[in-house]
């Protein structure tokens, strides 16, 4: 058996990785809550954001955390364009259409990256990549501590945007009552695209937080996408606090199951949670009753 210190450290590191998961899930759940679509391209878009961060850092020597400031607007614009000009028109507003178009997009993105960058994994090494933070007797990974803090800050920011700004109000109005919102003069396609754009900007933040301690290859996003779906379903599709708590929970579960089951079998804990949640309570912990 492991000593309590190792277990606690692993769980805390899992909790902080969970925060970054939560950030990825935040965009997904926002998009679901407003557009009522499952965005299968979310993982691939995360990969795009990670490659952008990598490019900015490798080419211009920028710090990955500062790169977020460059990449977030780019991802925002990309997200807006994708929803407004591709996903929206191509899916004819049908659920199945959206599912398939975003799946198609994820395959296009993944393989375009593969053609451009080959399947090599790329990393950014910073002088703080392996630094640890001492918390009493516990040693915590520095990039993860930063990730945890930034995630909380981003969640608060997102909440403020949704509740204090005009576009936030429009987004919430469309989420609640699409027809009513369009009757009072809100452009629904614009709000949809803005929501998608915000979701993509969240991915840029997540990418910046991941890069100092993680690698990127064209398939990286795929590894995160099911985890993100699990979090969204667990937290309740469309619920922002749900995504945050779900993410933290999944991070801990993953850390615990890979500690006790080993790395390859460790992932299974997440999928079992996913399946059980879908079967027993598909509305999740915080989701409204359908």
């Amino acid at each position: 058996m492991y000593s309590p210190q190792i277990v606690v450290e692993a769980l805390l590191n899992g909790l902080m990785l969970g925060a970054i998961y939560a950030l990825i899930a935040l965009g997904l759940t926002l998009i679901y809550g407003v557009l009522h679509i499952v965005n299968f391209a979310h993982g691939a878009l995360l990969t795009v954001a990670m490659f952008m961060v990598w490019l900015v850092c490798a080419r211009y020597g920028l710090d990955p955390y500062l790169a977020i400031l460059v990449v977030a607007p780019l991802m925002f614009a990309l997200g807006y364009g994708l929803q407004r000009f591709i996903i929206g028109p191509a899916s004819h507003g049908k659920d199945n259409g959206i599912l398939l178009v975003t799946l198609g997009l994820s395959i296009i993105i993944e393989n375009a990256l593969l053609a451009a960058f080959q399947s090599d994994t790329r990393t950014i090494t910073t002088d703080y990549s392996f630094r640890v933070v001492e918390l009493g007797p516990l040693l915590l990974s520095f990039p993860r501590v930063v990730g945890f803090g930034v995630t909380i800050a981003t969640t608060i920011l997102l909440w403020l945007v949704l509740h204090q700004t005009d576009i936030g109000k429009a987004i919430r109005a469309v989420a609640k009552e699409k027809l009513g919102a369009s009757l009072v003069g809100i452009s629904v396609p614009h709000v949809y695209a803005m929501t998608f754009a915000i979701g993509c900007a969240c991915l840029a933040v997540a990418a910046g937080l991941l890069m100092p301690s993680f690698y990127v290859s064209p398939k990286t996003g795929a590894a995160f996408v099911l985890v993100a779906f699990t979090i969204v379903v667990l937290g309740g599709m469309g619920s922002i606090p749900g995504a945050l708590i779900g993410g933290l929970l999944i991070g801990v579960v993953e850390a615990a199951s890979s500690l006790f089951l080993g790395d390859s079998l460790g992932q299974i804990g997440i999928f079992l949670i996913f399946i059980v949640t879908l079967l027993v309570r598909p509305t999740g912990l915080f989701g409204a009753r359908a």
């Binding site: 004819h92 799946l103 296009i108 080959q118």
Partner: peptide
């Protein structure tokens, strides 16, 4: 070039959902 065939698959899927559902 790796991935080109799947890239084409993806484009065909999006196009077929858009224009020939």
């Amino acid at each position: 070039i790796p991935g080109m065939d799947l890239l084409v698959f993806g484009i065909i899927l999006v196009l077929s959902v858009a224009f020939s559902p």
